[in-house]
Design a binder for these strands. Structure first.
Length: 995
RNA sequence: GCCCGGGUGGUGGAAUGGUAUACACGCAGCACUUAAAAUGCUGUGGGCGUAAGCUCUUGAGAGUUCGAAUCUCUCCCCGGGCACCA
């Protein structure tokens, strides 16, 4: 019998294993557990390919190893079944996606089983199963209830082919991650998950994980934490200000005088009149006084504090021409809003023409102190309701905005631009400021009051930028463009007037949306400064000679160095200077240290059919006006309705929007007419918690019972691909951390250990793809050579983490090896321990071939995912051992069982065993017997090999020296030289250093 | 541009400070055979040499070390990620 009938033995044993349920994990708290996870596949129409094989097999071998070592191992499998391909397939073939998905799942499962994998199918999950997505929806509602799911309209990534919005993470090189179509920007209402709230936690959690650095670094970079400072620069304006003080006060009051001084610093004019009868004021007298003595025009900003705010509103009621804006701090609309009795209560008329006030003020800003002792804190909201505008609720430095320096007031009065920088040390070299075209200070209302001439140009520029895609905008070697605003910002450090530009190289949605230009020390700023003839100042030098003007891009100094031309920073290195200037700016009040992240919130809605419906209901006026209301828990799962047309609409609406009977519903809160949310969740939703469900897959009361989670979680080992580092791996950590914070799971991090694998490339060394025609189908290998050959062939290609090309050549080597195992089994098992045919020992001098050495090698290789060298060790063992006891042979079969489960099981039974080889304990090795009795000790002279000696293990240095010196060749090389040093590594080498 | 990997025979790869090229493929020779296949055995990095042996060799170059594929620096090439992110 030279080979084995793989088809027969595979069928026999796969059926037997299923019958004996040998791979099922029990929730047995008495045993140590291991949850070994492999990324569950998407069941596509093409079936599983070679690429899937890799992690599945690694996990299979690994979990069999631990199971045989006495662990309660769970190795579960499921289906990530929602998503675009199923839907596209359904559209093309006019099938229901559920039907085609079920077909694909059945096929993929058949494949997995044909490979002899030991998955626990009793825990199978499917993300598109309503019993499963009920809990995906339920978890989403927990996000919603915690305020971490929100609706917003914004420019999002839009794939024109798939006709859906995409998350940031799904855009690869400006193209759709799924279909490769260049992504466009589209203004859409979307649901977001606030992953940014978890930026710090996601970053810190990484430190505790046993993951490859490569993966951790990639996530760190994606989160992109940066420490820096927000600096506010005042903008010079052509405005004039009027300050109306409160009750029982006057122009000498330092809290008003200080504001006046701040305003005048920007070059603006400021009136601060003493209002008449300030301790017993009347409306008529004060309003008349202001109207008579103060000039108002379209550039006037009127600031009223407390009762001064009331006077300001009354003044605005009477004005004929509108003014630039109204700022109110600690103001109120009537005696009800006051805490206490005041003498002016009866001398004012507590009625306002809010409509008129609104019309007469270009902008309105309302400041409310939440700890105000004089005015009730609710007055801010009331004013905001009546007047609109911008409401800032804050805690004042001194109650009722009573301090000399109230940043909130200054901020509201003076137009400022805030920049984010990580290099404030170079701020003495700042010569311009740039804001992004999308910045809110450049909205249609022109809040900065930019003069007509520049404003027109800016609007044109904004339009131009809006029409460009992100791809165009970041294209390499692109010339900087921009427009001057006619305004200047004041650098508080040295009074330098920095021109303010609008330019698209600054992204309006990143950081503060504005940047300070330091052209001597930032290449982008340099390019911009050159085009617009902006001065370039050097403030850092590498060394003393490095002090000349910076005139070319190569000279731009972005590296380490020492500060010059920077007043009190001179002589410090850039790091010391950064700390000192940040302290300075924070103390002076125009800078604030901040942490910035590159991570952005997760766009969580898709305009497609085949996904979990978002379980929310919109109850808008004129119905109840309850806003967005969650679908009640007892109505979950909110099932996908049957629909005639799955075709995406492309309008930004999901196909669900067309089903009136589904969309129109009742508000769960007020019972009024309401509409269902029609977007669905992204593909990543179902996979963001699936490993938790394996702990308790049939629970219909909760997504998993706490005590089951407590036993099984966290995942001990997670096999998967590099491509999910900033997608699934980041998203699912986020969900897990959130569930942990809600006390719904027991671990803050889901995956203790992660092992990524390399790609299986086509035989041509290129990525396998249908278009290249280099796809190798694992089914073909199974059919021709058997599952065990496939299972050993794939890992033998190369190291698990490396990308390796598939090669048919490897198949024959493995095939020969397994045939040899098959033949030798009968030899070793026979009564005669030696066969003349095979056992003709040739290299019997070596005795380092004991089964103990093999046990040790295979164990450590499996634990370290070095399956390729493990297989080599099996081969070596057979090459070296021409005779073997049946006991050692049985150990060999047990060791081989995780790799070749069918052949070993068959041989095991042919040896007369009735139980399964897969239920045997992993053999133990004796460390003493692992060590060879004789070793090869290498003799070197000056590090060069001159002889090698076969010696008993443990030979002493002195003895080795004597033996080495006796060697003719060694003698030759030592002749006439003096040994100055001897290096001895026991059982390995002796090296003579000679002169 | 920045951040991660990687570069070793004809080929896939092994060795992570101590014999470079394990294991496998391929190739060559031998045995078995009427023959072939299968199987077994032997050989297989380059140069010099009859041989013993010498010498060169891990992308290129330098350095550290008694000793470097392995550590350090510079450069080249390949793969992956990020990117006008302030």
């Amino acid at each position: 019998m030279e080979t084995f009938d793989h088809k027969a033995i595979e069928k026999r044993w796969q059926e037997q294993w299923e019958k004996d349920r040998i791979y099922l994990a029990t929730d047995d708290a008495g045993k140590p557990k291991k949850l070994i996870l492999v990324e569950f596949p998407y069941p596509s129409g093409e079936g599983l390919h070679m690429g899937h094989l890799r992690p599945f097999l690694a996990g299979d071998i690994y979990s069999r190893y631990w199971r045989m070592n006495g662990y309660n191992v769970m190795y579960p499998m499921g289906w990530d079944a929602f998503g675009l391909p199923a839907e596209n397939f359904a559209i093309k073939n006019k099938l229901h996606p559920a039907v085609s998905t079920a077909k694909n799942v059945a096929n993929a499962k058949r494949q997995l089983q044909s490979w002899g994998t030991g998955f626990d199918w009793s825990r199978e999950v499917n993300t598109s199963d309503p019993e499963y997505y009920k809990w995906t929806q339920w978890i989403f509602l927990q996000f919603f209830k915690a305020g971490l799911a929100y609706e917003a309209t914004g420019l999002i990534n839009w794939c024109p082919k798939d006709k859906t919005g995409l998350a940031n993470e799904e855009v690869v090189n400006g193209c759709c991650e799924r279909c490769g179509t260049p992504v466009e920007k589209k203004e859409l209402r979307q649901w977001y998950l606030k992953i940014t709230a978890y930026a710090e936690k996601l970053l810190n959690g990484l430190k505790t994980l046993n993951w490859p650095d490569q993966v951790k670094i990639q996530q760190e970079n994606w989160i992109g934490r940066k420490e820096g400072i927000n600096i506010s620069y005042e903008i010079e304006t052509k405005r004039n200000y009027v300050i109306l003080h409160g009750w029982d006060s006057n122009s000498k009051d330092p809290k008003y005088a200080a504001i006046k001084k701040e305003i005048e610093k920007t070059g603006a004019v400021c009136a601060l009149p003493d209002l008449p009868s300030t301790s017993k004021p009347t409306e008529a007298e004060q309003v008349e006084f202001v109207l008579k003595n103060i000039r108002f025009d379209e550039n006037t900003i009127l600031y009223g504090k407390s009762l001064g705010g009331v006077v300001a509103m009354k003044v605005l009621e009477k004005l004929k021409n509108p003014i630039a804006g109204l700022v109110l701090a600690g103001s109120f609309v009537g005696p009800d809003g006051l805490q206490g009795e005041y003498p002016f209560i009866n001398s004012f008329r507590w009625e306002f023409d809010f409509e008129k006030i609104r019309r007469n003020a270009g902008f309105i800003k309302i400041l409310s102190d939440l700890k105000d002792h004089a005015v009730k804190p609710t007055q801010g909201k009331i004013l905001h309701e009546k007047l609109g505008g911008e409401l800032t609720e804050t805690i004042a430095v001194k109650s009722h905005f009573g301090a000399e320096h109230e940043p909130a007031v200054i901020e509201a009065l003076l137009p400022k631009v805030t920049v984010f920088t990580t290099r404030p040390d170079t701020n003495f070299g700042a010569t311009f400021v740039v804001i992004g075209p999308e910045h809110r200070l450049l909205n249609q209302r022109n809040p900065l009051n930019i003069s007509e001439k520049y404003w027109k140009e800016i609007q044109q520029y904004q339009q131009k930028v809006a029409s460009e895609s992100d791809m165009d905008r970041v294209a390499e070697g692109r010339k900087k463009t921009g427009v001057f605003t006619g305004l200047y910002c004041i650098n508080n450090l040295n009074g330098y007037r920095m021109p303010l530009y609008v330019a698209d190289y600054v992204l309006g949605h990143v950081g503060t949306g504005a940047v300070v230009g330091v052209p001597g020390h930032d290449k982008r700023d340099f390019e911009f400064a050159q085009i617009f003839n902006i001065p370039i100042v050097r403030v850092v030098q590498k060394d003393r000679n490095d002090s000349g003007p910076i005139t070319s891009l190569e000279q731009v100094q972005e590296d380490e160095g020492t500060m010059i031309n920077s007043d009190f920073l001179n002589g410090l290195d850039i790091h010391q200077a950064t700390v000192k200037i940040m302290d300075h700016m924070e103390m002076k009040g125009y800078g604030k240290r901040v942490v910035n992240y590159k991570l952005r919130d997760w766009v969580f809605s898709r305009q497609r059919y085949w996904g979990e419906p978002i379980p929310l209901i919109h109850c808008d006026p004129p119905a109840g006006g309850c806003g967005v209301v969650p679908v009640p828990d007892e109505e979950l799962p909110l099932k996908l309705p049957e629909v005639k047309d799955y075709e995406p609409t492309g309008t930004g609406e999901s196909p669900l929007a067309a089903i009136d009977s589904w969309v129109n519903t009742k508000c769960p809160k007020c019972g009024g007419k309401a509409r269902r949310e029609t977007n669905t969740m992204p593909q990543w939703a179902g996979s963001s918690w699936y490993w938790l469900r394996y702990s308790d897959p049939h629970n219909d009361k909760e997504f998993a019972a706490k005590q089951k989670l407590k036993y099984w979680q966290p995942v001990d080992m997670y096999f998967g691909g590099m491509e999910h580092t900033t997608l699934h791996l980041l998203y699912s950590r986020f969900w897990n951390q959130f569930l942990f914070d809600q006390s719904l799971v027991t671990e803050s991090e889901p995956y203790l250990r992660r092992v990524p694998h390399g790609l299986i490339l086509g035989p041509d060394g290129e990525k396998m793809s249908k278009s290249r025609g280099n796809v190798v189908n694992p089914d073909d290998v199974v059919a021709e050579f058997g599952a065990d050959v496939l299972r050993m062939c794939e890992p033998f290609l190369g190291p698990h983490e490396a990308s390796v090309p598939w090669s048919d050549k490897g198949i024959i080597g493995i095939k020969r090896f397994l045939d040899k195992v098959w033949r030798l089994s009968f030899v070793f098992a026979s009564e005669a321990k030696q066969s003349q045919e095979i056992a003709t020992p040739t290299s019997s001098a070596r005795n380092d071939n004991s089964i103990h050495k093999l046990i040790k090698k295979i164990s450590s290789d499996i634990e370290n995912f070095k399956f390729n060298t493990a297989i080599a060790a099996f081969m070596e063992f057979l090459n070296e051992n021409k005779e073997l006891s049946q006991a050692d042979w049985e150990k060999f079969l047990i060791l081989l069982a995780p790799f070749a489960p069918h052949v070993t099981e068959e041989l095991w039974h042919q040896l007369g065993h009735k139980d399964s080889v897969h239920r045997k304990s992993w053999p133990k090795f004796d460390e003493k017997l692992v060590k060879a009795e004789t070793v090869t000790v290498v003799v070197q002279v000056l590090g060069r090999l001159r002889a090698s000696l076969e010696l008993p293990a443990g030979t002493s240095q002195a003895e080795v020296k004597v033996k080495a010196m006796a060697d003719a060749n060694v003698k030759k090389h030592l002749e006439g030289k003096q040994v100055v040093k001897e290096i001895f590594v026991p059982d390995k080498l002796i090296n003579f250093v000679v002169k």
